[in-house]
Nucleic acid binder design. Sequence first.
RNA 1: GCCCCCAUAGUCUAGCGGCCGAGGACGCCACCCUUUCAAGGUGGAGAUCGCGGGUUCGAAUCCCGCUGGGGGCACCA
Length: 496
Amino acid sequence: MSVRVRYAPSPTGIPHVGNIRTALFNWLFARHEGGSFIVRLEDTDQARYMEGAERAIFDSLSWLGLDFDEGPDPADTSRDIGDYGPYVQSRRTETYHRHVEQLIAGGHAYRCYCSAERLDGVRKDMQARKLPPKYDRHCRDLTADQRRERESAGEPSVVRFKTPLEGQTAIHDLIRGDITFENETLDDFVLLKSDGFPVYHLANVVDDHLMEITHVLRGDEWVSSTPRHVLLYGAFGWQRPLFAHLPVILGADRSKLSKRHGDASVLDLRDSGYLPEALFNFLGLLGWSLDDHTEIIDRQTFVRHFSLDRVLANPAVFNFDKLEWMNGVYIREKLSDAELAERIAPYLENEIGSPVDRELLARVVPLIRERIKLLRDAVGMAAFFFLDGELTYDTETLIGKKLDEATAARALEAVLEAVREPDAWDHESLEAVIRPLADALGLKAGDLFGVIRVAVTGRTAAPPLFETMELLGRERCRERLESALRRLEALRARGP
RNA sequence: GCCCCCAUAGUCUAGCGGCCGAGGACGCCACCCUUUCAAGGUGGAGAUCGCGGGUUCGAAUCCCGCUGGGGGCACCA
């Protein structure tokens, strides 16, 4: 039988990295095994539903290249791709109701008429008595007459599972081994809410069975509810899938990563300029490793080698520094100039507010590829190449720490003079005429170059000066050098 | 409070009884390269393998206890 796994997010927000890592491992496992990767939307909580969440889920998946074999049609989630649909739980309520009736008929579930207030009271009371906050099974043993009475009075109800009062439920986890739970620590959990929607436990089990899921790879936070699921499979008389609980991903404070930890959403990372290849690689190495030394691993290699027995059981802290480093590696080693230009262009265009000159960009890319870690860094490192008019910068940076206004001005004048007329405008010629100026001015070359750099780029850190000037062109350089001189004069006029 | 899981440097990890006086990576420090910033190169600091007991000729590796961390205990998923 071929492997079928699923990624079952609920549309309550934008997927964060921990969530998408679960999708990634499911995808890797499916691809390695030659099985199917299925996406199912678990939208049974209307209260937490977020507009646009489906879009974000599909965008995250496709951005990372996690293609699925079955699931809702991203273009129209009321349609399905695959033969086991619907793949959206809100379109499966009939199915859940049918199965709940089956459980009630079989004596595995019952209707409960307790009000939210009563439940609250019970919970508080239990906690006050230092007992686990479980449902007191008040409605479990109602007589047929009592039930009829409640029903005819039109009382709202939920359906609860009739959890065995004693005994144990054991689960075998592919990553953690055998785990045993005492049934008495479980309570009669709700299967069907009073609004008619199923609760996760029910919907999940029914769907996984009907969709013939073979392996349930999900987050660690589910291990404690797995005995409930196992009990349900038993009550239905179904064979259960294999379980593998993936370790959670923690924030720097060692608590479960969530929105609280800032921009850990996949889409935010994308917008910051992380490459999908890098995130894929990084996430694939969170809880799994190829060997004792390989860090940079491509998609094919992951697929070829991925296996559950190398998945760790211990939680991992998400290390943004390492992700950033890895992104840098991909930027400078894995992308061609053309690809990098393509990915950087939107950031630059967004910054300067107009299309960038692609020819110029093609020549700029080699200069910045080793200097940026995130695509977004290209803005600071290269926007000045494409900007017209005055640059924005603090005039003080022109002077720096080692010079004074007069010296800086003299230096700029000398440079202007040197580059005014003849000679070819290429970095070698420029260096040939400018470098000697340092001696003439009594400056160290580095200090001279520093003044020019700020004048010409508006920044203290930039690509190599002469190559930068070459690409900027004679006119722009001249304008900017003159502008810098005017700034110095203004400063002197105002100063003591 | 109860249940469950986890435990190698600040972080991600290799290790599955002897090859480990613990390997790799990020980060950090120093030096080299260098016009700035990076990148690159070299070197370095950083782990009593959480602690305590066992088992064994031999334990980071197996067992038990403790401690610590995490997760769960909803008509949320």
